[in-house]
Design a protein around this nucleic acid. Structure first.
Ligand SMILES: [Mg+2]
Length: 241
DNA sequence: GCGACAG
DNA sequence: ATCTTGTCGC
């Protein structure tokens, strides 16, 4: 059984201040390279939270889809104890540990991963997708449902339409607001590691059907809710095929 | 000090 | 993110 590879870059057991310093340091390692060739496998990751015997747990799901068919070829989920609270701009320290544990169990090696959160559209340019992109050492894209950081000057209304998201200080482009469904609230897309913003937007739109969320992230989220539901009713059982 | 604030 | 019935639209 082949397992997905990754780099153990640092400990996750650190203080808020250490986490912030680490983000600034790690952001300098990011590479924004043009995608060589189109991927054959794209993964999507998301997490849900649940209380078990009074303790907060995190359920992480990673789905692997074929591209451009977008058919699910693998799904993996794991439940772990929560080790970090939710603090805006420190999300990767809450969801990162569980993602890596789940990633370790993957049989396929997705060439690109979509995350439910920001890429570099972050105060220190290291959102969830950017941070984990360094760990798994491959292209990652931040697919956020709302804004954390950055300013926009327009709101896209028609599917496929998009506008840049600017850094409030230096005005550099750190992402984009992208309309993935007519009339629906736009998504905030930003590059993670080893990818450009343009390629990120192109891929997200290529993975989007009739719903607002692209399939990788949408399916991961749906599975996350199903695993949680089964966990609460059946106890500790896994969802059926 | 005040408001903003991914999931 | 989570809690949580009904309701509107495709
Ligand atoms: Mg999420």
């Amino acid at each position: 059984m082949n397992l997905a590879s990754y780099k153990n870059l640092h400990s996750w057991k650190i203080t808020n201040e250490e986490a912030k310093e680490l983000q600034t340091q790690l952001a300098g390692e990011l590479k924004f390279t043009v995608l060589g060739k189109l991927p054959r496998l794209i993964a999507g990751a998301d997490s849900a939270f649940i209380r078990i015997a009074g303790e907060e747990h995190i359920i992480t799901v990673i789905v692997v889809l074929s591209f451009p068919e977008l058919e699910m070829v693998e799904k993996k989920f794991l439940t772990n104890k929560v080790t970090f609270p939710y603090i805006p701009a420190l999300l990767s320290f809450r969801e990162g540990p569980s993602f890596i544990k789940t990633w370790k169990r993957l049989n396929y090696e997705p060439e690109i991963v979509f995350f439910d959160g920001q890429g570099i559209a972050h105060p220190r340019l290291l959102g969830l997708a950017a941070h984990l992109g360094l760990w798994i050492d491959r292209p990652t894209i931040g697919v956020a449902k709302s804004r954390l950081f950055g300013v926009t000057e327009h709101t896209p209304i028609k599917k496929g339409e998009w506008y840049p998201l600017f850094h409030p200080e230096d005005r550099r482009v750190i992402g984009a607001t992208v309309c993935t469904k007519d009339g629906a609230a736009p998504l905030f897309i930003s590059q993670g590691n080893y990818i450009t913003l343009e390629d990120s937007i192109r891929l997200v739109l290529s993975c989007t059907n009739k719903q607002r969320l692209p399939e990788p992230t949408r399916l991961a989220h749906l599975l996350t809710e199903r695993v949680k539901k089964d966990k609460k009713t059946v106890g500790t059982q896994d969802p059926e095929e």
